[in-house]
Amino acid sequence: MRTLLNVIWLVLCGVWLAIGYAVAGIICCLLIVTIPFGLASFRMADFALWPFGRQLVRRADAGAPSTIGNIIWIVFAGWWLALAHLTTAVALAVTIIGIPLAWANLKLIPVSLVPLGRVIVDSDAPQDARYPAVN
């Protein structure tokens, strides 16, 4: 079922979201100073391609730089992206077929709001693999 939902998501929504996040990542990486935001955009593009069966977890070794970066991200891009995902989720939830796609859009809100200091893992991964230890 997860694969079917991912294929439907990929065809209807995922490709376009991933392209948008990848373009944003390329622009951020070209600007040198914003490379951490570019890498986060690539992570979001990966999650936007195949969201079902994966989840976002906080990295155990994320510290103050991630928090400061997330605050900057929220001010300049995060709240716009979260609002866009929420609006799209509401529009998709109008139809019965769109409800799972709306759920996937809601799953993208946390990563679009605070992408730094997070990692995307398989939902079926063992508990210790989901929460990476501090190295």
Rank of each mutant, 00 (worst) to 15 (best):
H85F: 09
L116Y: 00
A89M: 11
W73F: 06
S66Y: 04
L108R: 03
T67M: 07
A91G: 06
I68Q: 01
W79H: 02
V94F: 12
G98V: 07
I96D: 09
W79V: 03
A91T: 11
W73H: 01
P65F: 09
L116M: 08
L86S: 14
P115R: 02
A89T: 08
N105I: 08
S66Q: 08
W80H: 11
K107E: 02
A104G: 14
A93D: 07
A77Q: 13
H85Y: 06
I72H: 04
G78C: 10
A89L: 05
V90A: 15
G78D: 12
L101H: 01
P115W: 00
P100C: 09
L101I: 04
G98L: 05
W79Q: 00
W79C: 02
P100L: 10
N105M: 12
G69V: 07
W103D: 03
I71V: 15
A77W: 05
I109T: 09
P65I: 06
L92Y: 06
A93M: 12
N70C: 10
L83M: 00
V94I: 15
V94W: 08
N70E: 02
L92C: 06
N70F: 07
L106D: 09
I97Q: 00
A104R: 10
A77I: 06
L116I: 03
W103A: 13
H85S: 05
S112M: 11
A77D: 04
V111I: 13
L113A: 08
G78H: 07
A102L: 06
L92E: 03
I71F: 15
I97C: 01
A89I: 03
L92T: 02
F76N: 09
V90Q: 03
A84Y: 11
P65M: 05
I72V: 13
I109R: 09
F76Y: 14
T88L: 15
I96L: 14
W103V: 14
G69W: 03
I96H: 04
I109E: 12
V75F: 13
I74E: 03
L83A: 01
P110W: 10
A84N: 00
W80N: 12
P100S: 14
A82R: 13
A84V: 09
V94E: 07
P115V: 07
W103F: 13
I74M: 11
I74Y: 03
G78V: 11
L106C: 12
I72N: 05
T87P: 03
A104K: 07
T95S: 12
L101W: 01
L101E: 02
T87C: 13
A91I: 15
V111C: 09
G98D: 02
L86N: 11
N70S: 06
W79D: 05
V114S: 10
